[in-house]
């Protein structure tokens, strides 16, 4: 069965499916990571019931250990400890969301810190509620500040999704591995997979640049 089977039209289909899985894992873990990361960042900022520090310590470990090991921890460790079933895709999305959230939390905190404290004092003396301050003053400005960091994080996390192939998710990298094992054509297969990731990254960069431009209008007020 092995070796020199040549490429078939089904390889193209496999490539497209892998691309879809990679994109799906990337998109869902980015969105979940953004939501949870923002929540963690806000809990830390308002220091709700003192769990902010614990969450940030957890984030530090997620930021400072290999994503591959985190994947193993979730995919092999959690089902063994709690005797539950996790599919590779579920484990992949849980791990990458958690990892993204850890980075997002730190970005959120540093971009809130970047806001001029006088603005918050002024807002409080105008008797704005904390919710109004968050929505009208903190949110637009910190988002403008955070956008470039979000974009470079997204490009990085896109590459990190390739690791999910190791726990058996049939993403772009796994498709490359499957086709490579069958055809023994590493010089055709891997450059194609590499270029696909490259183009995806450039696409994310392009969209990110547009978002950056759109949100940067909120930064004008702080420069006056």
């Amino acid at each position: 069965m092995y070796g020199d089977q040549g490429f078939t039209i089904f390889d193209l289909q496999l490539w497209a499916e892998g691309l879809g899985i990679t994109f799906g894992v990337f998109l869902s873990s980015s969105i979940l990571g953004l939501i949870f990361g923002s929540i963690i960042g806000l809990i830390r900022y308002y220091n709700i019931i003192g769990i902010g520090r614990v969450l940030m310590l957890g984030s530090e470990f997620l930021k400072n250990s290999p994503v591959l090991v985190q994947l193993f921890l979730v995919y092999f460790g959690i089902p063994a400890l709690f005797t539950i079933d996790l599919s590779p895709v579920e484990a992949a999305i849980i791990t990458l969301s958690g990892n993204t959230a850890a980075f997002i939390a730190v970005i959120v905190i540093s971009s809130i810190d970047a806001i001029d404290k006088k603005q918050l004092e002024a807002a409080r003396s105008f008797a704005l509620s904390e919710w109004q301050i968050l929505r009208l003053i903190i949110y637009p400005q910190s988002l403008a500040f955070a956008m470039p960091m979000f974009v470079s994080l997204a490009i990085n996390q896109l590459q990190v999704t390739s690791l999910v192939s190791v726990i058996g998710v049939v993403d772009l990298t796994r498709v490359g591995d499957i086709i490579n094992q069958r055809t023994f054509e590493p010089f055709i297969v891997w450059p194609i997979i590499g270029v696909t990731y490259f183009v995806l990254a450039k696409l994310v960069e392009r969209i990110g640049a547009r978002l950056e431009q759109r949100f940067s209008v909120h930064q004008a007020s702080s420069e006056i």
Partner: peptide, 27 residues
């Protein structure tokens, strides 16, 4: 390290403890 831990995890059937230890070690 990661390969070694993988082997330890499959011999002990304690993947959670082993990978948790590894995460903390790298951290």
């Amino acid at each position: 390290l990661t390969s070694a831990s993988k082997i330890i995890a499959s011999t002990t059937f304690r993947p959670f403890e082993v990978y948790m230890f590894l995460v903390i070690f790298y951290g």
